[in-house]
Each structure stands twice: as structure tokens, then as C-alpha cells.
């Protein structure tokens, strides 16, 4: 892996996203619309909104990041440029880390918009520090970027990437404490729930937002999430060669 190639790929990815004005607008508008809808839906149930907000912020952060990355990376493959890159000395690490850095800027902005809009416009009550919530979301965002890249290596077109959404997200939404707390799930679901990365993101964000805990208190959750993000990057390196 070389610094020069990795940064060149990251800059190129960012440049492509910035040039695509319509997609750029959607990257920022879509999360706003979704979170506004959430706000209106719960406008007369502030307590419920406060309780579900950390879970919804986590789910939408992961979902938007996954879609942004999965589709963009697939385009690199379907337009043949990834294949062309592989007839240069570029390594898988260069490609993946370059993409990760390139997408991360936009995915992080997207996550920040979701967080700030939820807290200040939807007006969710919170106790912890905003920057600490953002740190949790950043780790989740890195996981989401890697998940998008990983999933797109198994898809041949955009339709197939979209098919991954119910497969990857439905179990997490039902089991990760989004619909109800993990502790209230039937016993046989509690084990699998602990394996899901979103469970740890929701729990960490909930602890900071609702109980005012600090990052140090949720370090074990963040460590699990970071391990998933790193693991996916390593696995993606093994699968990304598929052309």
C-alpha cells in the first residue's frame, strides 16, 4: 500500500461525488427528510421519541452510508475502471483504504447532519456530549462504508445491492434494540442480538444520549464495532479482486 496511490484514489472518489450534483444533493437532503418524518411522527410523544432517537440515528446512519458506498463502489466495477486499476501496480489495500477515505468525508457529513438535525430540529432531549455521540457514529460510519464495499463485491448490479438491504438490515432492526430493548427480546434472540454490530452502536449511543455516560463507559461497545469495521475491511480485501 502506498500513500500516494491511496490519497489519489480518495481524492478521485471525492471529486466524482462532488461533480455529481444531484447525488450530492440527495446525500444531504434524504437524511433530513427521513429524520423530519420521524420528528413529525413522534411530535406528541416526546418520551418515546427520546427513547427511540439513538436507535433511529444509528439505523439511518448505517443505512445511508451503506447505500452510498455500495452503489458507488459497484459503479467502479461495472464501468470497468476497477478492472483497469488492477492492471496497474495498485494494491487492494490502496483501493479499499482510498475508497474508505473518499467516502468517509461524505458519510461523516451525512451522519453529522442526521445527528444535529435530530437533536436541534426534531428537538430530542439528550444528556451526553454531542462530540462523543459523533465519535460513536463515526465508528459506525466506518463500519457502514466497509459493509457497503464488502456487499458490492458480491453484487453484479444496483438492483442486487438494494437486495442486500432487507437481508442485512431487517435482522438488525428487529434484534438490535431499535424496535424494543434487547433485554426484552425472547431469550433465544438475545444471543444472536449480541453478535449484531448495530446492537453495540445503539447501546453505546443510548448510554451517552439518555444516561449522559462518557465514551470511556461505552468503550467495550465501540471496541466491538471497531473490530467489525476492521474485520470487514480485511475480508473485503480478500473479495474485492472479483471483476
Amino acid at each position: 500500500m502506498t500513500f500516494d496511490r491511496t490519497t489519489a484514489i480518495a481524492v478521485r472518489v471525492m471529486r466524482e461525488i462532488v461533480r455529481d450534483r444531484r447525488s450530492l444533493a440527495l446525500i444531504f437532503l434524504a437524511p433530513l427528510l427521513v429524520m423530519a418524518l420521524v420528528g413529525f411522527s413522534f411530535s406528541e410523544k416526546q418520551d418515546t421519541l427520546d427513547r427511540v432517537a439513538p436507535a433511529l440515528i444509528s439505523v439511518f446512519t448505517l443505512l445511508f452510508t451503506f447505500v452510498l458506498t455500495g452503489i458507488s463502489f459497484l459503479r467502479e466495477r461495472s464501468q470497468g475502471t476497477l478492472e483497469r486499476l488492477y492492471v496497474t501496480p495498485v494494491g487492494r489495500g490502496d483501493v479499499l483504504v482510498g475508497y474508505l477515505l473518499g467516502f468517509l468525508v461524505f458519510a461523516a457529513l451525512q451522519s453529522l447532519i442526521i445527528l444535529l438535525f435530530t437533536v436541534f430540529v426534531v428537538d430530542v432531549n439528550y444528556r451526553g456530549d454531542l462530540w462523543q455521540m459523533f465519535v460513536v457514529l463515526m465508528v459506525l460510519t466506518i463500519f457502514g462504508v466497509n459493509l457497503g464495499i464488502f456487499a458490492s463485491t458480491f453484487a453484479r448490479n444496483e438492483f442486487q445491492v438494494v437486495q442486500f438491504i432487507p437481508m442485512l438490515f431487517a435482522p438488525q432492526i428487529f434484534l438490535s434494540g431499535v424496535v424494543m430493548p434487547v433485554e426484552e427480546l425472547p431469550g433465544y434472540f438475545q444471543g444472536p442480538a449480541e453478535v449484531l454490530p448495530l446492537t453495540h452502536a445503539v447501546r453505546a449511543l443510548r448510554e451517552i444520549m439518555l444516561r449522559g455516560e462518557a465514551l470511556g463507559d461505552v468503550m467495550s461497545e465501540i471496541a466491538v464495532l471497531a473490530a467489525y469495521a476492521t474485520g470487514l475491511l480485511v475480508v473485503a480485501m480478500a473479495t474485492v479482486r472479483r471483476t
Binding site: R12, R15, E16, R19, G80, T81
Partner: peptide, 11 residues
């Protein structure tokens, strides 16, 4: 040089 042009269209 592949058969498909394989270029970044927005660049």
C-alpha cells in the same frame, strides 16, 4: 486498454 472505455465519466 479494455474494450469498454473504462473511464471516470465525471472527471
Amino acid at each position: 486498454m479494455p474494450q469498454l472505455n473504462a473511464l471516470y465519466m465525471s472527471l
